[in-house]
Computed example of a mutant assay.
Amino acid sequence: MLIDELHAELAKQGHPDMRPMHGFVMQAIGTRGTTAVELGRALGVSKQAAGKTVEALERVGYVERTRDTADTRRKIVRLTPYGVDALDRSARIFDDLRAQWAAELGEDRLRALESDLRRMTPANLWRLDTPGWFAGL
């Protein structure tokens, strides 16, 4: 429900192609960029699977591939301004939705729910599989 609401609002704000997994991948790419090999490691997938995801994100304009200035044999995947905008809007929308939940449940009750969910989440869970608030960040 929360993720569906977030993506519906994100679509209204100019990002109709954004999917839940895209956000996790784009967070893994980060502000400095990464290679497909490093991205695959961060996501726990093969270089080929990471490459296919990068291709999909590139087609919709969220990322671009450039040559590494330090090593021209390497290609770096970087967020485009459109990709950065999607992540920024996503964070703001999430904060607004969380605030709605806090208004409905009460801040103390929501914090307790978040705490309970963190407690039930395995410590070795793939770190990009949860929103930042869930990981306590």
Rank of each mutant, 00 (worst) to 15 (best):
A102W: 05
G44C: 02
G23Y: 01
G51I: 03
V60G: 05
D88T: 14
R32S: 11
G83D: 07
A50D: 01
K52Y: 13
M1K: 10
E104N: 07
G44P: 03
T66C: 07
E64K: 11
Q48S: 14
T66Y: 06
T34M: 04
R89E: 12
P131V: 14
V60Q: 12
L87G: 06
H15I: 04
L87W: 06
D116L: 09
R67C: 02
S115K: 12
A50R: 03
R19G: 01
E5D: 14
G23N: 04
G30R: 01
Q100S: 10
D88A: 13
G44M: 07
R92K: 15
T53H: 10
A49T: 15
M120S: 09
I76N: 04
G83H: 08
R32W: 01
G33N: 02
G136C: 06
T34K: 04
M21S: 09
L10R: 03
L137A: 11
G30A: 03
D95A: 15
K47E: 09
I3K: 08
G136S: 06
V63G: 08
T121Q: 09
L105Q: 09
M26E: 02
A99I: 02
G14E: 03
L137D: 09
V25H: 03
P131S: 13
A102T: 08
M1H: 13
D116M: 12
V45M: 09
T66L: 12
T121C: 08
K52V: 00
A36C: 07
T130H: 14
V77G: 08
R41P: 00
I3L: 07
L128T: 08
R73D: 11
A99S: 13
